[in-house]
Amino acid sequence: MRPALARIYRLAGRAHIVGITGVPGSGKSTLVGKLAQKLRARSMRVGIVAIDPSSPYSGGAILGDRVRMSELATDSGIYIRSMATRGATGGIARAALDAVDILDVAGFETVIIETVGVGQDEVEIARASHTTVVISAPGLGDQIQAIKAGILEIADIHVVSKCDRSDANRTLTDLKQMLTLGTAGTAAKEWITPVIATSSVSGQGIDELLDAVGRHRHVALATELGAQRALAIAEFRLQKTAENLLLGRYAKIVVENSKPLALRLMRREGDPYTLADELLNSSLQTEHEHDARSKIA
């Protein structure tokens, strides 16, 4: 599979990658469905990678994002692929970016990544997409929530979903006020982060959101800010891939070697740092021995 992905990666790079993130139940999938419909109406082909969580216990997953995008099912200009996180914690599945490349090369002009429903800290999407949309649902926080670090910082576009609800105005105001306080990161002159109220029930705000995504695409393509972003995306991809290769190489050995050390940790015969050092050293040792044996063989 790696030779194929290597060829695909070199050919990719034309699609506009849009990340959509937000808490569980904030309306990500429904909004993605509406956006994709509008993009189709402008005769753009849309790829969608929709991520849902894997169970930490069984490893299984319910991938239910498609249920909210049912109008799109037989349109050949739309391709939806569901993915499970399989233990990845940053909000996107490990294979998601490979899937995005494939959709890119297949000619989908816009590729939407819908993250798993996130908490406050899953911000990887900002370093995997050209344009990041953060969805906030009404009724989930106050002005203090709005100035916290993490998910709200990464938005290129803020969306307040379900704006047909009466408490949506409050969320809208909190976010707008928060943005006026910012001095770091979002203070770039090329882009002013908009806050858009949407309702997937009435259709309000969807066109406005689509226009904002289009304007931000231009920023991503044609400005210094966009060039910086492109480099950050490449950096993230490289580091993340290295991390995954490393995990793949050592995970098995580390797991095999961890039982006796865990017993010692439980009995407080050592501290986590010393024993983790020991675990890594013994795992490297095991790998060396394995390499040496395979050379002799």
Partner: peptide, 24 residues
């Protein structure tokens, strides 16, 4: 039950056509 057995389960939602189901 399938999730708890470690499978990835995609659910289509209600009222799909045979065509939609095969495409998915």
């Amino acid at each position: 039950a399938l999730r708890d057995a470690g499978m990835d389960v995609i659910y289509s939602g209600l009222h799909r056509t045979p065509d939609e189901v095969v495409t998915v």
